[in-house]
Design a protein around this nucleic acid. Structure first.
Length: 509
RNA sequence: CGGGGUGUGGCCCAGCUUGGUAGGGCGCCUGGUUCGGGACCAGGAGGCCGGCGGUUCAAAUCCGCCCACCCCGACCA
């Protein structure tokens, strides 16, 4: 007997993905070319999102050449095209982080295990996912070394060494690094045993300063980056006690909604109070000569954002990339090998390059036209410029945008300017579209059962007073979580107990 | 830790019940015809059938042990 719906698969990624979840209703494809009756279909190329979203994600990873599974369970190889996206994210974030005053540094990947144990809640939360090195050079180590799951501990040791006076504060550090967390349910980009991220660590003289900085990073660095560069709108909110980072006094998170209605935590910024400072003796003398503990923060975003980008924008044709992070912004291709198409495209390409646009010339005329088109659609290249005999005869090129599928004929002489305008429009329109789609998935709820029902297809807004710790337990028992808490006006509340606080509830990756 | 399942070219799988020269699709290589939405034809490369042992004239197939991975549950969050 054949188990219905069984999909044997050697890959570890899709494991348990749809556990208990009914496939939510899906919106109509954003790309009109894929609509019923239009004739062009990606059938056979990609699993449709509505049929099996996790399989669609897996197909996109493979066909857009984003990532492969690593040899060790839970590890991932990021392929050049996927890494190109990450590099674009890194470059922009790095600028924003520096604009916020932080400087880059680098701390070791191996951390003495005893460091991890100095802050009680920190070690409690991270122990289950630690990878520990016990041998080196063929000898058992006197003290095991943890492979960093995050670097608060080692960085605080050095903050303690470097900070003496209030004049040394604030100390604003950031590092780009890899971290390892032993995950039992890995999912490519979203939860991998090893991932790449940036982790910021700061020390401040006052609680107010630390709090303001953690919020500043969450808004000016993370939220703005996600909106302006990734074209993904996020809810900024406060984590509940249960969802808080191990060792934090407050965690602020950026929560995005994917196209299957599930939420994804795209980034977090934590107030650590004086807990790490006390554990690691990060202290300074204030202007009055009084010795005080510093107030610290930490904040990070990771390669998980690549997964979020895929799932927030991708459609049945594959990836859709906002121009700001697209490794290739415009692809140029000829329909056939003969004629003067190549020369015409060279001219447009040279103009685009001179204008600073990232282009790719697809010279593979030995492949069928359809094959090449599908390739670039799968890869989400924002704009495609095509020249064939028809265009050539008219002195034009065909310019097609990936986000809407809209195509137009443009005189060759105007192609560069038109592409630039389109790239700007796509960047804007993708945010507008993603925002509309997200908002359509947000439902107001008054009770925990109502919130659970709404979480089947999206995100529920429910008064936190109607949930509480008991309600949160109930939600968790049914696969939903409180993603974050917001004040009535959408801002980040200073405490859970503020009047009018609203909980955003969803199933999450 | 308990229950269930799967290991066969790069990928997905058939073959196993009833032992008898290792197959198909996709991908890859060559040549040709094609090329306006994943083309077609022909030829070709590529496999200690997860490992060890057993039964047998003969094992991918039957038996035993082991390993790895996956699913459900438990645990954790």
């Amino acid at each position: 007997m054949e188990p219905v719906g069984a999909r044997p698969c050697a890959s570890p990624w899709p494991a348990g993905w749809t556990r208990g979840a009914a496939p939510p209703a899906r919106p109509a494809p954003a790309n009109p070319r894929h609509a019923e009756g239009h004739g062009w279909s990606m059938a056979g190329v990609l699993t449709r999102q509505a049929d099996d979203f996790p399989q669609w994600y897996q197909d996109v990873l493979n066909k857009a050449e984003l990532a492969d599974n690593g040899p060790a369970r839970g590890t991932m190889v990021i392929r050049p095209y996927g890494y190109g996206i990450w590099e674009r994210m890194q470059a922009d974030l790095d600028r924003r982080i520096k604009r916020a005053g932080a400087q880059n540094a680098y701390f070791p990947v191996l951390i003495p295990l005893s460091y991890l144990q100095r802050e009680a809640e920190h070690v409690e939360k991270f122990s289950p996912e630690l990878a520990v090195v016990t041998h080196g050079g063929g000898e058992q180590l006197a003290e095991p070394l943890a492979v960093r799951p995050t670097s608060e501990t080692v960085i605080n040791v050095f903050m303690a060494k470097w900070i003496h006076s209030y004049r040394d504060l604030p100390l604003l550090l950031n590092q780009w690094a890899n971290v390892v967390r032993w995950e039992l349910r890995p999912r490519a980009f979203l939860r991998t045993a090893e991932f790449l991220w940036q982790e910021g660590h700061t020390a401040h003289a006052t609680r107010e300063d630390a709090r303001a900085y953690a919020l500043r990073v969450a808004t000016e660095v993370y939220r703005d980056f996600m909106r302006e560069v990734l074209a993904i709108p996020v809810f900024l909110g406060r984590k509940t006690r249960r969802e808080r980072f191990g060792g934090a006094t407050n965690s602020i998170s950026c929560e995005a909604v994917m196209r299957d209605g599930k939420a994804l935590q795209m980034g977090t910024s934590h107030e650590l109070g004086q807990r790490f400072a006390q554990a690691f003796d990060v202290a300074f003398q204030d202007a009055d000569g009084i010795r005080q503990f510093a107030w610290t923060t930490s904040w990070g975003v990771s390669t998980r954002m690549v997964g979020g980008l895929i799932m927030a924008h991708g459609d049945d044709g594959g990836l859709r990339l906002p121009p700001a992070v697209a490794p290739v912004q415009v692809v140029l291709m000829a329909v056939t090998a003969d004629g003067g198409a190549a020369a015409a495209l060279d001219g447009v390409g040279a103009g685009l390059e001179a204008a600073g646009v990232r282009i790719h010339r697809d010279a593979r005329v030995d492949l069928s036209y359809g094959r090449r088109v599908v390739d670039w659609e799968l890869k989400g290249v924002p704009v495609r410029v095509v020249v064939g005999p028809r265009e050539l005869a008219a002195g034009q090129c065909s310019v097609t945008r990936r986000d809407t599928g809209a195509a137009e004929k443009v005189p060759l002489g105007e192609a560069v300017a038109r592409c630039q305008a389109l790239l700007a429009a796509i960047q804007r329109d993708m945010l507008v579209a993603a925002t509309a789609e997200r908002d359509a998935r947000v439902v107001d709820a008054a009770t925990v059962p109502e919130a659970l029902s709404a979480a089947e297809t999206g995100l529920a807004r429910i008064p936190w007073s109607a949930v509480g710790e008991a309600g949160e337990t109930e939600l968790n028992a049914h696969g939903a979580t409180v993603r974050c808490l917001q004040a009535a006006d959408g801002s980040v509340p200073a405490s859970e107990d503020e009047a009018g606080v609203v909980a955003l509830v969803a199933r999450a990756y």
